[in-house]
Computed example of a mutant assay.
Amino acid sequence: MPTASHSPWRHLPNAISMLRVALVLPIGWLLLHRNWSVALALVAVAGVSDGLDGFLARHYGWQSRLGGMLDAIADKLLLICCFVILAWLGEVPIWLAAIVCGRDLVIALGALSWRLLIGRIDPHPSLLSKACTLMQIVYLLAVLLALIRWPVPVSWPFAWAVAVLCVASGLDYVIRWSRRAWRVGHGV
Results as ranks from 00 to 15, higher is better:
V21N: 01
W62G: 03
R179L: 15
C81H: 03
A41K: 07
V106Q: 06
A57M: 09
N35H: 06
L52Y: 02
K130I: 03
L116P: 02
P93R: 14
H11Y: 12
V184E: 12
P157C: 07
I118W: 09
V84L: 15
C132Q: 06
H186K: 13
V92L: 11
C101P: 00
T3E: 15
D50V: 01
R180G: 07
G51Q: 07
G102E: 08
L31I: 05
L147H: 03
W177G: 01
D50R: 00
L171C: 14
A57F: 04
G67K: 05
L78K: 00
L117K: 15
I16P: 00
Q63L: 08
I16H: 01
V162W: 08
I175R: 15
L116C: 11
R183D: 13
L25M: 13
P13H: 01
W182A: 08
R176M: 09
L70K: 04
R120I: 11
V43N: 00
V184K: 11
L79A: 06
M1F: 12
A97R: 04
T3I: 11
L145P: 00
G90D: 13
V184S: 07
P153E: 11
G90F: 07
C82L: 03
V143H: 05
A98W: 11
D122G: 06
R115F: 14
L165R: 03
T3P: 08
G54P: 01
Y60D: 04
V143S: 07
I121Y: 15
G68R: 03
L89A: 05
A74P: 01
A4Q: 15
R65Y: 09
L70D: 02
G61L: 09
T133D: 02
H33L: 03
H33T: 03
S7M: 12
V45M: 09
